[in-house]
Amino acid sequence: ETQAGIKEEIRRQEFLLNSLHRDLQGGIKDLSKEERLWEVQRILTALKRKLR
């Protein structure tokens, strides 16, 4: 995994995270989306740690 590859994956995950946040802010309670949001946040945290 290169730095560029990790950064690209971070961009993808952040896009997905923002999309999930928008969907959930629409007021629709969706447990699967909430679980996915937490999963994406965990992935992002792990990726950012790899960059250090």
Rank of each mutant, 00 (worst) to 15 (best):
residue 1 E to N: 10
residue 1 E to L: 11
residue 1 E to I: 09
residue 2 T to L: 10
residue 2 T to R: 08
residue 2 T to Y: 11
residue 2 T to G: 06
residue 2 T to I: 09
residue 3 Q to H: 11
residue 3 Q to D: 06
residue 3 Q to S: 09
residue 3 Q to R: 10
residue 3 Q to E: 11
residue 3 Q to L: 15
residue 4 A to G: 04
residue 4 A to Y: 07
residue 4 A to L: 08
residue 5 G to L: 13
residue 5 G to I: 12
residue 6 I to M: 03
residue 6 I to V: 03
residue 6 I to A: 01
residue 6 I to C: 03
residue 6 I to T: 02
residue 8 E to L: 10
residue 8 E to K: 09
residue 9 E to T: 03
residue 9 E to K: 05
residue 10 I to M: 02
residue 10 I to C: 03
residue 10 I to Q: 01
residue 10 I to L: 02
residue 10 I to S: 00
residue 11 R to S: 05
residue 11 R to F: 04
residue 11 R to M: 09
residue 13 Q to H: 13
residue 13 Q to Y: 15
residue 13 Q to C: 15
residue 13 Q to V: 15
residue 14 E to N: 02
residue 14 E to P: 00
residue 14 E to C: 12
residue 15 F to Q: 12
residue 15 F to W: 08
residue 16 L to F: 05
residue 17 L to E: 05
residue 17 L to W: 09
residue 17 L to D: 01
residue 17 L to F: 08
residue 17 L to A: 05
residue 18 N to V: 13
residue 18 N to L: 10
residue 18 N to A: 14
residue 19 S to G: 05
residue 19 S to A: 12
residue 19 S to N: 07
residue 19 S to Q: 14
residue 19 S to C: 12
residue 20 L to Q: 00
residue 20 L to R: 00
residue 20 L to S: 00
residue 21 H to S: 09
residue 21 H to R: 14
residue 22 R to N: 10
residue 22 R to P: 02
residue 22 R to Y: 06
residue 22 R to K: 15
residue 22 R to S: 08
residue 23 D to N: 03
residue 23 D to Q: 11
residue 23 D to L: 06
residue 24 L to P: 03
residue 24 L to G: 02
residue 24 L to I: 07
residue 24 L to A: 04
residue 24 L to R: 02
residue 25 Q to P: 03
residue 26 G to H: 09
residue 26 G to W: 07
residue 26 G to D: 12
residue 26 G to R: 04
residue 27 G to R: 00
residue 28 I to R: 05
residue 28 I to P: 11
residue 28 I to N: 09
residue 28 I to W: 04
residue 29 K to E: 07
residue 29 K to D: 08
residue 29 K to V: 12
residue 29 K to M: 06
residue 29 K to Q: 12
residue 29 K to L: 11
residue 30 D to E: 04
residue 30 D to I: 03
residue 30 D to Y: 02
residue 31 L to Q: 13
residue 31 L to T: 15
residue 31 L to E: 13
residue 31 L to M: 08
residue 32 S to G: 10
residue 32 S to M: 12
residue 33 K to A: 07
residue 33 K to T: 12
residue 33 K to P: 06
residue 34 E to I: 14
residue 34 E to F: 15
residue 34 E to C: 15
residue 34 E to N: 07
residue 34 E to T: 12
residue 35 E to K: 14
residue 35 E to N: 08
residue 36 R to H: 07
residue 37 L to H: 05
residue 38 W to L: 13
residue 39 E to K: 06
residue 39 E to Y: 03
residue 39 E to S: 03
residue 40 V to S: 02
residue 40 V to N: 02
residue 40 V to P: 00
residue 40 V to A: 07
residue 40 V to E: 02
residue 40 V to D: 00
residue 40 V to M: 06
residue 41 Q to M: 10
residue 41 Q to I: 15
residue 41 Q to F: 11
residue 42 R to M: 11
residue 42 R to W: 06
residue 42 R to V: 07
residue 42 R to I: 06
residue 43 I to R: 08
residue 43 I to T: 10
residue 43 I to W: 03
residue 44 L to T: 00
residue 44 L to W: 01
residue 44 L to R: 00
residue 44 L to Q: 01
residue 44 L to P: 00
residue 45 T to P: 00
residue 45 T to Y: 08
residue 45 T to Q: 10
residue 45 T to C: 07
residue 46 A to I: 12
residue 46 A to W: 07
residue 46 A to V: 10
residue 46 A to E: 14
residue 47 L to R: 00
residue 47 L to A: 00
residue 48 K to R: 13
residue 48 K to Q: 06
residue 49 R to P: 00
residue 50 K to E: 12
residue 50 K to Y: 04
residue 50 K to A: 13
residue 50 K to P: 02
residue 51 L to R: 00
residue 51 L to F: 03
residue 51 L to H: 02
residue 51 L to Y: 03
residue 52 R to H: 14
residue 52 R to Y: 14
residue 52 R to N: 13
